[in-house]
């Protein structure tokens, strides 16, 4: 089915990598985790998007977003890294880009708003980065979930599903950075439904878990791992009691915490017990018929393939 709701900024592009016709491209910021610890996130996103006719066009010379947003009033330096990435988007002749990692999305989106709110801040940052062209403002930061929902559309995605996920019980885990603060959240901060709707359009059953918008502990896994372990016990425990087959996230740090601390609780490595953690792009790609080898499922600490193979068999 042709996608009618195509923005003016979308550009036609041919891709030799797939038999599916790629008609559009959107700039894309990967971030550190997607090149290392979460390669399956990027691979599956690229493969799934190609099936939907979109190419993710990686920003040239992108740099670390800073991971966490500075919450102080006087710390302009922390906004230099995001602004430098916005300049890369500007150089591509584009006005927007998508991020996959929820932490990157949040940090970049908040910085974009921070410099847009006060031109004095922006001119000081521009003056500091005298080796770069000035950032003129106006670059829009999108999360891929937003892009799937608002631009491609879940109905369109449903029409492309090759392997419906009938019978699969999937618990979404939003965490913090997709939803808070309100002005950058992609959905309601306490009662989001974007992932639930996506899963249902893929044929799966969305499992409602009470802790889906709560923090996993994030970077406190470095300084206070005990506190994070307690969080994970609660989050995963509630999902397990609801008989979910999988937990789905959009954040490499959530994924790390939910996997590692589950394993430290059960004391097992590479176990088939425990609840596997998938990125939403891996679930999407699987339903769209992306070959398993392109989804990066083997990198997961808790193997999700047994849960998914029940679908293929049945």
């Amino acid at each position: 089915m042709p996608n009618e709701a195509v923005p003016k900024s979308a550009k036609a592009s041919a891709s030799p990598q797939t038999s599916h016709i790629t008609r559009y491209a959107v700039p894309y910021f990967p971030g550190c985790a997607l090149k290392d610890q979460a390669v399956g996130f990027e691979r599956s996103a690229r493969a799934a998007l190609l099936r939907l006719g979109w190419e993710l066009k990686e920003l040239p010379r992108w740099n670390c977003c800073g991971t966490v947003y500075s919450l102080s009033t006087d710390d302009l330096m922390r906004h230099v890294a995001p602004v430098r990435n916005f300049i890369r988007v500007q150089e591509m002749g584009e006005e927007r880009f998508v991020a996959l990692c929820a932490m990157c999305y949040n940090t970049l989106k908040r910085s974009a708003r921070f410099v847009a709110a006060d031109l004095g801040r922006l001119s000081r940052i521009n003056a500091f980065m005298d080796e770069e062209p000035d950032y003129r403002g106006g670059v829009e930061v999108l999360h891929l979930l937003q892009f799937l929902r608002d631009e491609i559309g879940f109905e369109e995605i449903e029409s492309r599903v090759e392997k419906p996920l009938y019978g699969l019980k999937v618990a979404p885990y939003y965490g913090c950075m997709l939803l808070r603060p309100r002005e950058v959240g992609i959905d309601h901060p306490d009662a989001p439904e974007t992932m639930e709707l996506l899963f249902e359009h893929l044929g799966a059953e969305a499992v409602n878990s009470p802790h889906k918008v709560e923090c996993c502990g994030a970077y406190q896994t470095v300084a206070n791992p005990g506190v994070v372990r307690e969080r994970v016990r609660e989050i995963v425990g509630a999902v397990a009691r609801r008989d979910a087959d999988l937990i789905v996230t959009s954040c490499p740090l959530c994924t790390y915490n939910l996997e590692r601390h589950q394993l430290s609780i059960t004391g097992e490595e590479k176990t088939r017990h425990g609840i596997p953690i998938l990125y939403f792009t891996q679930l999407l790609g699987f339903a769209l018929g992306v070959p398993e080898g392109e989804l990066g499922l083997g990198g997961a600490a808790i193997d999700p393939r047994p849960a998914l193979s029940q679908l293929v068999g049945g």
Binding site: G66, C101, V222, Y256
Partner: peptide
């Protein structure tokens, strides 16, 4: 611990 956690914590 992955770099995303280390960078976040050090910042």
């Amino acid at each position: 611990v992955p770099q995303i956690a280390l960078v976040g914590a050090t910042r």
